[in-house]
Amino acid sequence: MANRRVLVTGGAGFIGSALCRHLMKSGGYEVLNLDKLTYAADLAALADVAAQPNYALEVADICAREKLGEIFARFRPEWVFHLAAETHVDRSIDSPDAFIETNVVGTQRLLGAALDYWRSLGADVRTAFRFIHVSTDEVYGTLGAAGSFTEESPYRPNSPYAASKASADHLARAWQVTYGLPVIVSNCSNNYGPYQFPEKLIPHMIIRALKGENLPVYGTGENVRDWLFVDDHVTALLAIAQKGRLGEKYNVGGHGERRNIDVVRTICGHLDRLRPRARGSYADLITFVTDRPGHDLRYAIDPGKTEREIGWRQTTDLDSGLAQTIAWYVANEAWWQAKLAGGYRAERLGAGAIR
């Protein structure tokens, strides 16, 4: 049986690279990674698969409509996983234009190219085609002290990033309803794990702690996030492509709600054991800073529909996933030092920067 051809946009990003690694490990897939290679791309995360004959990297921008058409015609994918996006909330507050261009305009152009290609296929191949649009729980806005987001939750995005992803979700749904393109939308909770770019909360705190710098926590640290180990997320995406119903939405969450301050304290506790400071605890470095604008209080995903219909279950809970992730950053200092040496700055508003 021939390998299934899979196009992954944003495949050099954190989740995309994990998906590419998983597909290569699973076998039976030919993968084309379409990535613009922006600041958050990480080819080191793909080193183990880069030389495999059924994997290739295409450096391209999803906003380049003509190039997209050429890629679809040449590679002839059966599945598309769309993960290419600008993702950092703080950067979206400072510079929203890039988020609208990539997340909204880029998604529309990718959908257009996919539609043209899909219409050109024979009936049997058209039936097998899937376009998996990967999104976030931030499109739903914020929760109070109780309840969880379901697939029926209204969209109430509160940051430019969330608004751009909400717009992309609506476009994906519209292309399915209006044109019949075989689209499925997934919305995930906060991902974490090895190779995550240093601007995100968990690697940001690990790296600053290891460098002996203050650990800036927004507000009082009461904001709650629902955490999902990245390898669990990619198994969910693959299951959605295999078993999901066309035109449906599937929420993917890790049953991992925790206050930001508690996540940071857990990181400090692990580091105290793995690499003790000469004096005191890493928790002594925690510093509360001015909250960011429009900071959502709480996210929580109800993945019940995905678990019931798809049969997917997470395999890594937050405590064990954090332990694995922290140990990876401690053991891979050369990786994150290279990120810092490459001119990276963690532009977290009000929270200082990694130097």
Score class of each variant (00 low, 15 high):
residue 311 G to N: 11
residue 264 V to L: 07
residue 256 G to L: 05
residue 6 V to S: 05
residue 322 L to T: 06
residue 80 V to E: 00
residue 26 S to L: 14
residue 124 D to T: 15
residue 223 N to Y: 04
residue 112 G to C: 09
residue 231 D to I: 02
residue 259 R to M: 13
residue 303 P to N: 12
residue 277 R to P: 02
residue 47 A to V: 13
residue 205 M to R: 06
residue 305 K to V: 14
residue 286 I to E: 06
residue 205 M to L: 12
residue 202 I to A: 04
residue 339 K to C: 11
residue 50 A to E: 08
residue 334 A to Q: 07
residue 125 V to S: 14
residue 338 A to G: 11
residue 132 I to K: 02
residue 243 K to G: 00
residue 205 M to G: 00
residue 102 T to Y: 03
residue 17 S to L: 09
residue 106 G to E: 03
residue 318 L to K: 04
residue 212 G to A: 07
residue 237 L to D: 09
residue 222 E to V: 06
residue 86 E to L: 08
residue 49 V to Q: 05
residue 163 A to F: 01
residue 46 L to Y: 11
residue 41 A to V: 13
residue 34 L to A: 06
residue 350 G to I: 11
residue 136 T to P: 04
residue 330 V to Y: 06
residue 71 I to R: 04
residue 30 E to D: 11
residue 121 L to Q: 14
residue 20 C to D: 06
residue 35 D to G: 01
residue 139 V to I: 14
residue 184 I to W: 06
residue 180 G to D: 10
residue 134 V to K: 09
residue 173 R to Q: 14
residue 291 D to C: 05
residue 35 D to C: 02
residue 122 G to M: 13
residue 346 A to K: 07
residue 286 I to Y: 07
residue 289 V to G: 01
residue 302 D to G: 08
residue 252 V to F: 06
residue 109 R to Y: 15
residue 155 Y to I: 15
residue 313 R to Y: 13
residue 242 Q to M: 10
residue 188 C to G: 08
residue 132 I to A: 04
residue 70 E to G: 08
residue 314 Q to A: 15
residue 173 R to P: 00
residue 30 E to A: 12
residue 226 D to R: 04
residue 77 P to V: 01
residue 202 I to F: 05
residue 140 Y to I: 02
residue 102 T to S: 09
residue 331 A to N: 14
residue 147 G to E: 07
residue 270 H to A: 13
residue 262 D to M: 01
residue 182 P to I: 02
residue 317 D to T: 13
residue 167 S to E: 04
residue 307 E to Q: 14
residue 162 A to G: 03
residue 89 V to D: 02
residue 63 C to R: 15
residue 16 G to A: 03
residue 346 A to M: 07
residue 299 Y to P: 01
residue 172 A to L: 05
residue 187 N to L: 14
residue 273 R to H: 09
residue 14 F to G: 03
residue 148 S to G: 03
residue 41 A to M: 12
residue 250 Y to H: 08
residue 178 T to I: 12
residue 225 R to E: 01
residue 241 A to P: 09
residue 97 D to L: 13
residue 244 G to Q: 10
residue 249 K to L: 13
residue 99 F to C: 01
residue 302 D to T: 10
residue 341 A to Q: 13
residue 66 E to K: 11
residue 178 T to H: 10
residue 252 V to Q: 09
residue 240 I to D: 11
residue 328 W to Q: 07
residue 330 V to Q: 09
residue 292 R to E: 08
residue 308 R to T: 15
residue 17 S to G: 13
residue 263 V to W: 02
residue 217 V to G: 04
residue 150 T to W: 06
residue 136 T to E: 05
residue 26 S to N: 04
residue 76 R to K: 15
residue 197 F to D: 06
residue 331 A to M: 05
residue 139 V to L: 08
residue 162 A to P: 01
residue 12 A to L: 02
residue 316 T to F: 12
residue 168 A to Q: 01
residue 298 R to P: 10
residue 235 T to G: 06
residue 305 K to M: 14
residue 354 I to W: 01
residue 143 L to R: 11
residue 259 R to V: 02
residue 80 V to G: 00
residue 340 L to S: 00
residue 260 N to G: 03
